[in-house]
Design a protein around this nucleic acid. Structure first.
Length: 259
DNA sequence: CCGGATGTTCACCT
DNA sequence: GAGGTGAACATCCG
């Protein structure tokens, strides 16, 4: 579950873990972590969950001992007590095949915490380094965003800067295209060259878009989503969308109203 | 059959 | 150092 939206929905599901105690840890796929089974046992067995947190796309399952970090990659999904945080995830298979179970916790009350991930892009970690991540996009302030955009660089594209998790955490490829479309800014604009009004508009649309997509229940629920196909037309003005690669990611945008 | 897909990391260029 | 590109991960879908 890729972007901040899906991770936040997972965090909310994880609220039900608070106060419950871990019995055993099972790293079913060693590929899913740089930490080995023994270290997970030592850090988590017997630990009690506190309130879960999130920074960008990283879910933080806090315990009185260590913090279990889960990054879902593109197709990872959290399942707690048999309930999936997301019924459906775009670009991920619908089913929960047993072979896609990568990591699991058994709780002392019989409950379970599972990470399912067909593509093996998800990662679990212990006490993840939060200093490697910028402020969370759902709560970034206007001055912070201004600083993020104006930080010295050699003219990096606006979209690439917004996707840089070390500067701003949580924005992924769908959210960024939606936000830029709503703001009316070209993804190719040099990040450092936005004027004050444009930064303010971008900040407002970033926050508002995240709120809206959260209410709707997914990063794929934006206005632009249906038009993100070859030959797609701008939902606002009917202009053919441009398909290009910006910041290494496929990008759809309207050359008519996004300047 | 082929190309891509909400992501990150790493090697390799420029 | 800053960026850009392409590969890798594994599976599904059009």
């Amino acid at each position: 579950m890729p972007e901040l939206i899906e991770v936040e929905l997972s965090r909310r599901l994880a609220d039900r873990l608070t106060g419950r105690r871990i019995d055993t840890v099972n790293l079913l796929d060693a590929h899913a972590s740089r930490v080995d089974q023994g270290s997970f046992d030592a850090a988590l067995a017997g630990a009690t969950f506190a309130e879960p947190g999130r920074r960008g796309k990283l879910l933080l399952l806090e315990t009185g001992a260590a913090t279990l970090g889960i990054h879902f990659g593109m197709t990872g999904r959290l399942v707690v007590d048999g309930r999936p945080a997301l019924e459906r995830l775009v670009y991920s298979p619908q089913a929960f095949e047993p072979r896609w179970l990568r990591f699991a916790l058994m709780l002392q009350d019989g409950g379970t915490v599972e990470l399912h991930d067909p593509r093996r892009l998800a990662r679990v970690s212990l006490d993840p380094d939060l200093s490697a991540l910028g402020p969370d996009a759902a709560s970034v302030t206007l001055p912070e965003l201004r600083g993020i955009l104006r930080a010295r660089s050699s003219g990096i594209a606006l979209k690439a800067r917004l996707l840089d998790q070390s500067r701003l955490a949580g924005v992924g490829n769908l959210i960024v295209d939606e936000v830029l479309w709503r703001t009316g800014l070209s993804p190719e604009r040099p990040a450092t060259l936005l004027d004050d009004d444009e930064v303010r508009r971008l900040h407002r649309h970033l926050r508002r878009t995240i709120d809206t997509l959260l209410e709707r229940g997914g990063s794929h629920t934006g206005e632009l989503m249906a038009a993100r196909v070859r030959g797609g037309l701008c939902p606002r003005d009917g202009h053919p969308l441009t398909r290009s690669v910006v910041g290494g990611r496929t990008t759809y945008w309207c050359g008519e109203h996004q300047r």
